Computed example of a mutant assay.
Amino acid sequence: MHFETASLFLITASAVQGVVFAKDVGDYIWNITQYQAGLSHGNPADPTTSWYRFTVSGSIHGSIGSESYIPAFEALCTGSGAGFPLSSDYSDCAMDSTPDESALSVSARIVPYVDNTQAHIAINYVFSTTDEARNYTATAVTDWARLRAPYNFTLSPNEVP
Rank of each mutant, 00 (worst) to 15 (best):
S80D: 05
L76Y: 03
R53E: 13
S50E: 06
L39S: 02
G62A: 02
D92N: 14
D92W: 02
G38L: 06
Y52C: 06
D92P: 06
L39C: 03
G42W: 04
S97F: 14
A103T: 08
T49H: 10
L86G: 00
D89P: 02
A103V: 03
S40M: 08
W51L: 06
A37M: 03
I64Y: 15
P85E: 10
T98F: 10
H41M: 12
C77L: 11
I64S: 12
F54G: 01
G83K: 03
E74G: 13
L39G: 05
S91V: 14
M95T: 01
P85H: 03
N43F: 13
D96E: 14
E101H: 02
P47K: 07
S68D: 15
G79F: 04
G38I: 05
A75K: 01
A82K: 08
S66T: 15
G83R: 02
A45H: 12
S80L: 00
T48N: 10
G58S: 06
M95H: 06
G38T: 05
G79A: 10
S91N: 11
F73E: 07
D92A: 11
L86H: 00
S66V: 03
E101V: 14
T78A: 12
A94Y: 03
T55A: 04
D96A: 14
I70R: 00
E101L: 01
R53P: 00
S87E: 08
D100A: 13
D100L: 12
T48V: 14
Y52Q: 07
S57P: 01
A94R: 10
P71T: 09
P44R: 04
N43D: 15
C77N: 06
I70H: 00
E67R: 15
E101C: 05
G38H: 07
D46G: 13
Y90L: 05
G81H: 03
S63C: 01
D100P: 03
H61F: 15
S50R: 02
A94K: 09
E74D: 11
A103E: 08
Y90A: 04
P44Y: 02
S40H: 00
T98S: 13
S59L: 11
G62V: 02
P85A: 08
S50G: 15
S80I: 03
C77D: 07
S80H: 05
C93P: 06
L76T: 12
L86Q: 04
